[in-house]
Computed example of a mutant assay.
Amino acid sequence: MPDFNPTEYAVPGFVALVLLEMLWARRHRRDAYEARDTLTSLAFGLGSTVSGLLFGGAFLALFLWVWQFRLFDVPWSWWGFALCFVLDDLKYYWVHRFGHRVRWFWASHVNHHSSQHYNLSTALRQSWTGFLTLGFVFALPLVLLGFHPAMIAICAGFNLIYQFWIHTEAIDRMPRWFEAVMNTPSHHRVHHATNPRYLDRNYAGVFIVWDKLFGTFEPEVRGEKIRYGIVKQLGSFDLLWSVFHEWIGIAQDMWRAPWKHKLSYLLREPGWTHDGSRETSDQIRAAWRERNGERENSVSSDNLVAGKPEAA
């Protein structure tokens, strides 16, 4: 069993790419970076690394215990790694989708979306509290199928490395064949947008085909300026508030809610309220479609972005 963590080797590349993008931003998009926002993103990345060190060992021990009940023995071969990578990416799609559709999961994942800027440093905004969501359960079927936990961890590391480069506005569109199969900066800009058209779309990690298969794909559209962040923006660079604000919001909502609705504030989609005082992403999108139905229905393939969204 190899002792190999691909993300450790990728860190110098991450730093170099961030610096290159900063140089690009100075010339082409001076608003792409904001110093306090970037420092917050870096702090998120550091805290997430510490959290992983604290809790990663416990999850690995659990996976190794489950592995004794495996149905098959998938070999450490090229095809074993390839199959593991594809299945792990499918697993990621569903973890990510739950991260947007169940508020308990969203409380952890919202950290990644809290920046109103979209650049490579945004990719470093990783959760400190992912262990609370028990999202690791989604990987247990892979262990039971016979993929060694270390193999799964290595594939997940390469998956994370791939996702780094798509957090940028410096790249317009990739070749059409690549856009059809793989996740790209254009597809992922949609995912980070708060525009009603784009809410809760494009959950893919590496392969955008999952979104096309499960009905959650939305292309980037020319002429529609993208607004990044979350529906209710933080309005603060306070690190601890950025990390824990949604957990605090859940606790407050559950405390105030009638008993029969308390659990719903934990398990239903973000924005749901028992009295209709807030809106979910589905409700926001439905209202937008009702107001703009004619225009939306008239969008043709010619309007799909051939490059990056128009500058702010």
Rank of each mutant, 00 (worst) to 15 (best):
R173M: 03
S121I: 02
H148S: 01
D88H: 14
R103K: 13
F147S: 07
L140F: 15
H117T: 02
I171H: 12
Y162W: 14
F158S: 01
S115V: 00
H148Y: 07
N111G: 13
Y93E: 01
F131L: 10
L145G: 08
F147M: 02
F138T: 11
W128N: 12
E179L: 05
D172S: 15
Y118H: 11
F147A: 05
L132P: 00
R103P: 08
P175E: 11
H187I: 07
W104K: 05
I154M: 12
V102C: 13
H96M: 10
V102L: 10
L144C: 03
F178I: 14
F138A: 14
F131D: 06
N183K: 02
L145C: 08
T133Q: 02
R173N: 12
D88T: 14
S186L: 05
Y93N: 03
V95G: 06
W104V: 03
S108I: 06
W128Q: 15
V137E: 00
D88Q: 15
W106Y: 15
H96A: 04
L124P: 04
R97P: 01
R101Y: 13
K91A: 14
S186A: 15
R173H: 09
G130S: 12
V181P: 09
N119C: 03
R103N: 14
Y92E: 02
A180S: 12
W104F: 13
L134C: 11
R176Q: 12
S114K: 10
T122C: 09
N183W: 08
F98S: 14
Y162H: 11
N159M: 11
L160M: 12
